[in-house]
Write a protein that binds this DNA or RNA. Sequence first.
DNA 1: GTCTATAGGTGGATAGAC
DNA 2: GTCTATCCACCTATAGAC
Lengths: 209, 209
Amino acid sequence: MDTATRALEIAERLAQTRGFNGFSYADIADELEITKASLHYHFESKADLGLALIERYTDGFKGALAAITGDASTRLRRYAKLYEDVLVRDRMCLCGMLAAEYSTLPRSMQDAVRRFFDMNDEWLTRTLDRGRSAGVLGFDGTALEAARVLTAGFEGAMLLARSYSEPARFAVTAKRLLAHLNGSTAARGSRAKQSRAAARPVRRAAAHR
Amino acid sequence: MDTATRALEIAERLAQTRGFNGFSYADIADELEITKASLHYHFESKADLGLALIERYTDGFKGALAAITGDASTRLRRYAKLYEDVLVRDRMCLCGMLAAEYSTLPRSMQDAVRRFFDMNDEWLTRTLDRGRSAGVLGFDGTALEAARVLTAGFEGAMLLARSYSEPARFAVTAKRLLAHLNGSTAARGSRAKQSRAAARPVRRAAAHR
DNA sequence: GTCTATAGGTGGATAGAC
DNA sequence: GTCTATCCACCTATAGAC
């Protein structure tokens, strides 16, 4: 692997764990065992490095999405798994992290972050629409709205799970977010407005406080 | 207002917009029109300032939660409104922002960030449980799990809405997240697994792509 | 491609006068 | 409480030799 790529892999890990403003050329150079000056040969400025980082990440994600098969319900579970795979490596979604730092980023990086989320919106919207048409999924409103609930929920769940070092928090939340779309479960069919707590004691275990 | 408090207000705004690692003593001192040295008189270290920031924010939020009245459904809408009020001032939730930077924060601040989310978990869990018992809300699983779906969704929606300068993204997502709990709406009652798209054309306007 | 050396700036923090 | 002056570590970035 060439030096530029190795630099990107190190930078990616640092950006996902500490944020783009949380690491420096020195951190990367030290790990590569080259000097900061040499690193500037590969990436003239940190903004250039950052842009390359996002575009590489987006391409990788696009490839992962393209590799997802199955019916809509399965696809969504696999989509959630992509996030979970990032989290279990103790990382935040790169673009979720950059979204937090958004106002401090150079314009080129801001635009690239948006493109990542736009890509997610498109993939999810398509998947949700097809799932609903096929009768596999059920949800109100537009598919785009439902897509954004998922993205917000997944990104937020990652953010919080990381603060507690509890990847399971993500898994539980992701599962429930997907359950809202899964019209075919027994739970949905049997649930009513009125208090059914007493009727389903098994699901009430371990409530907080 | 005394200097320390004014410093905290400025720091709070900067932390919510740029992150804790995105501002410096110089930024605050410049706005206050005092020197950095004077600021160190009020807050010996940036870690001290950061801790005071979170504790003040948490206290304020706790007060806002205590002031919320109404049935469970109304309370949840008002809870969402608290987040929206932050967002429309072009800010991220302070602790959501700090959660992103979590691994770079001093231990004292990390613990305080967790306490903020623990407080939210408790308030939401209590509200959700009461709402379900009263028959106002309907949801599967534990109230704690449902609470965390809301927190994750709200924090994530704020994060994304800010990257697009579109507060409406938050409002739409928040509304849908709450709708999942509102067993009494006509939508829930009428929705089925099978594709009902054709039956509800009015809700299908403006799909993405 | 990688190095040494350095520029020019900013970070948080402290000493001590007023 | 606020100041001047200063420290030292770190930041991104560049010039120019090898």
